[in-house]
Computed example of a mutant assay.
Amino acid sequence: MLANSSFSMPSTFLLIGIPGLEGGTLWIAITFCLIYILAIVGNCTILYVIKTEKSLHGPMYFFLSMLALNDMAFSSSTMPTMLGIFWFDAGRVDAVCCLTQMFFVHSLSAIETGVLAAMAFDRFIAICFPLRYMTLLTNVLLGKIAMAIVVRAIVIISPVPVLVGRLQYCTENVVSHSYCDHMAVVQVACGDIRIKSVYGLVISLSVIGIDLIFIGLSYTMILRAVYKLPSRAARHKAVGTCGSHICVITITYFPGVFSFVTYRFGQNTIPHSVHILLANIYILFPAFLNPLVYGVKTKQIRERVLRTFYLKTDTFRPLH
């Protein structure tokens, strides 16, 4: 794959960050770095609260833990590369490392949508079959769902870097991106890239489309069940249990779908710098916002965090 040939894959790629915004990259990097640190702290807090609070050892919080772990891995898959480009002008990346990053970025994205679909299924069982919730969503079933999500992502995404590595490359190795995105690297290749582009498009649409359809069906059944509840208070409580998940779905899918559509179909109307900013926002901002959403809207997590903070401040209170 890396043989010395005029049409072989180059030994390295040069990532140039965000073309057109070179003058503001310092402040962009500082902002993204602060958001990244807060994202790591927020998700670690969620994981700590779920682990230490026995009342949160249930199916809903199992999937929330998966989401937190995936968010940290997802944002960490690109942030070191981006900060290295912006702060140290270290944009040269080994080709194998570039393909490896490509695999992790897109597989973690597939895991993200899979976890959101699983969380929708969890809410469907909780509202439509509340008395059988714990008996249906056993630990064995939760493990199988988690394994299926991870295996699906690996199987679907594994061919992507392999196909990219087999493309024909001439002398160009400059990638107009802040990390090794699939389409950004493919556009560096010379020759016919339509088959690889179509494969990437089909994979993206199938993963996102299937998960969105599953989420839509789950919430359709949830709304039907909620509509049949006898009192407004019961309906409000049932919908309230879905509020956090709906917010997280919006936070994740909106920038992701917008970035995907504009990158593939809006090349002539939207500046390239906007595409790259959206791609980074899609990876970084859900990891930052998801802990805030669940911390604010989930009573058990909110109370546990406040109780922990109160105990710490009370411990260090000066004596009079």
Rank of each mutant, 00 (worst) to 15 (best):
I145H: 06
A146L: 12
I149T: 07
I149E: 02
V150S: 01
V151H: 00
V151M: 13
V151K: 00
R152H: 08
R152S: 08
A153L: 09
A153V: 07
A153I: 06
A153R: 08
I154Y: 05
I154D: 03
I154N: 05
V155P: 10
V155C: 10
V155E: 10
V155L: 15
V155A: 12
V155D: 09
V155I: 15
I156E: 10
I156V: 13
I157E: 03
I157H: 01
I157V: 11
I157D: 01
V160D: 05
P161I: 04
P161A: 07
L163C: 07
L163M: 07
V164P: 05
G165A: 12
G165V: 13
G165Q: 11
G165D: 13
G165R: 11
R166C: 14
L167N: 01
L167Q: 01
L167W: 02
Y169F: 15
Y169A: 02
Y169N: 03
Y169M: 08
Y169T: 08
Y169W: 15
C170E: 10
C170R: 14
T171G: 11
T171H: 09
T171K: 13
T171M: 07
N173T: 06
N173I: 13
N173C: 03
V174K: 06
V174R: 10
V174T: 15
V175Y: 05
V175A: 00
V175T: 08
V175Q: 03
S176E: 09
S178A: 14
S178I: 12
S178C: 15
S178T: 12
Y179W: 05
C180H: 04
C180L: 08
D181H: 13
D181C: 11
D181A: 14
D181F: 14
D181L: 10
H182I: 13
H182Q: 06
H182R: 06
A184D: 04
V185H: 07
V185G: 06
V185T: 11
V186R: 08
V186C: 06
V186Y: 10
V186F: 10
V186P: 03
Q187K: 12
Q187R: 11
Q187T: 04
V188H: 01
V188K: 02
A189I: 02
A189D: 07
C190T: 00
C190P: 06
G191T: 00
D192S: 12
D192V: 13
D192E: 09
D192A: 10
I193Q: 09
I193V: 09
I193T: 11
I193W: 15
R194V: 06
R194I: 04
I195Q: 08
K196M: 15
K196V: 03
K196S: 10
K196P: 00
S197Q: 10
S197W: 14
S197K: 13
S197I: 11
V198T: 09
V198C: 13
Y199L: 14
Y199G: 00
G200L: 07
G200H: 06
G200I: 02
